[in-house]
Amino acid sequence: MSESGGTGETANTIQDRVRGGKPVVWFLVSGNRFAVAGVLLAVAYAVLVFLGQFGPGSITRLFEPDPLFALFTPVIIGIIMGVSLVLTFNQLVLSAELGPIGDQRERMAEAMAFRRDVEDAVGRETSPPEPSTFLRGLVEATGAHAATVLERLEAESDLDAAAREDVREYAEGVAADAERITPKIEGRQFGTFDVVASVLEYNYSWKIYAGRRVRNRHASELSEETLEALENLVADLEFFGPAREHFKTLYFRWEIIDISRALVYVSLPALSVVAYMILVFETGDVAGSVAGVDTGLLVVGLGLAVGVTPFSIFLAYILRIVTVAKWTLSMGPFILRETDRGSDIEWE
Rank of each mutant, 00 (worst) to 15 (best):
W327H: 11
P131S: 06
L135Y: 01
G57E: 09
K184N: 00
E231D: 05
A42T: 03
E282I: 00
T126F: 15
P128E: 06
Y204N: 03
E169C: 09
A111G: 04
V273C: 05
E97F: 07
N203F: 07
P65Q: 12
E245L: 11
T133W: 08
Y45P: 00
V322E: 01
A35T: 09
W26A: 00
L150Y: 04
K22L: 10
G332L: 14
S95T: 15
R188Q: 08
E255R: 12
K184P: 00
K207S: 03
A163C: 04
M331T: 15
T192I: 00
G82V: 09
V280T: 08
I318V: 14
A325L: 10
W206D: 07
D16S: 14
G191V: 05
V266I: 06
E172W: 14
D177K: 02
L94T: 11
M108W: 09
E282Y: 04
L28I: 03
N232M: 06
F69R: 11
Y202R: 02
G143Y: 12
G31C: 02
F89L: 15
A141W: 01
A144Q: 11
Y251M: 11
T73C: 08
F72D: 00
F190C: 02
D285V: 12
H246E: 13
A11W: 10
R253A: 12
E125C: 04
D344K: 06
T142H: 10
R164I: 12
T295P: 00
W347E: 11
N12Q: 12
L271I: 00
R337A: 13
M1V: 11
L200G: 06
V36C: 04
V118T: 09
D166K: 02
G137A: 09
R180N: 04
D194Y: 07
V39I: 13
L297G: 05
F134E: 00
G211E: 01
G38W: 05
A210W: 01
K207W: 02
E130T: 13
A11D: 09
E106T: 10
V322D: 00
V264P: 00
A162V: 15
S330H: 15
A171W: 06
S157W: 07
